[in-house]
Simulated assay, not measured.
Amino acid sequence: MSARNDRRGRGKGRRKTRGHRPQREKILVLCQGTKTEPEYFNRFKQLYGLPHIKVQKEHLDPANLVDKAITLQKRGGNFAHIYVVVDVDDTSPTDLQRAAAQCRRQTASGPPLDLVVSNENFDYWLYAHVIDGRVPAITRKQIQKKLSDDCHLTGPNGKSLSPDFPVKSWTEAAGRVPQHGFGENGANPSTAVPEMLKRLAPPL
């Protein structure tokens, strides 16, 4: 065989392969709030380019919201991890503990399901983005008024994030508000949102 034919033979069957990113496992973020929270998490998705995260909303009490998450999974959701984001607001500690227990049972038999509680509500986490120093222990109405007065929350009901809300400052915000673990109510004010975002954000 000539050297020319030998080179041709060695080249047969070779194909150029295109580089591709491994597909990430799907994650569900199910929000109790129907406006502010979905807007925030969708912007977080856009900030980091996280198409594998699905943000959904459903205005239900914590226990029923956990049931909804379980139903979505059983109906072919195929999520590797589910986060259920809720506020304490006027929910009793017993009801929140029941929702947390549901999450633990589901995690024991399937993919992780975590209850992400903000005490008193999600607005305290938002406020941590726009202040210097620690989030004060003031009422949720006072927090919402401060966010609205400074135009961080807009819209008819004061529930929409302003176009320039600094979602990218979430790491700094995490140092300005007390934190607690998943499935815990925590003190007022405190939140488990920063821990969730640390897990969702891509590694540096």
Rank of each mutant, 00 (worst) to 15 (best):
A108M: 10
K35W: 01
Q102A: 13
Y83M: 10
N64G: 10
A99V: 07
E39R: 09
K68S: 11
Q73Y: 03
K68Q: 12
K35M: 15
G77M: 03
R75I: 03
S118M: 13
G76C: 03
N78W: 02
H52I: 11
T71K: 08
L72P: 00
A69Q: 00
Q32R: 08
Q32V: 12
Q56L: 13
G49L: 10
S118T: 15
V55H: 03
V66T: 06
Q106R: 14
V84D: 02
A69T: 00
K57L: 14
N119F: 15
H59D: 12
V66N: 05
A101K: 15
Y83P: 01
Y48F: 10
V84H: 03
Q102S: 13
L65F: 13
L96D: 01
P38H: 08
Y48V: 02
L60T: 00
V88K: 05
K68M: 09
Q97P: 00
N78V: 07
V84N: 11
A80N: 02
D67P: 00
E39T: 06
P111A: 15
R75T: 04
L50H: 04
H52L: 15
Q32T: 09
P51V: 13
R104G: 09
R98M: 05
S109K: 06
I53H: 10
Q32N: 10
G77K: 01
T36K: 07
A80S: 14
Q32A: 13
L115K: 05
V66H: 02
P38L: 12
G110F: 06
N42E: 12
D114Y: 03
R43Y: 07
D114M: 04
T107M: 11
S109G: 00
Q73R: 11
L113G: 06
V117P: 00
P112H: 12
P93N: 06
N78F: 08
D67A: 10
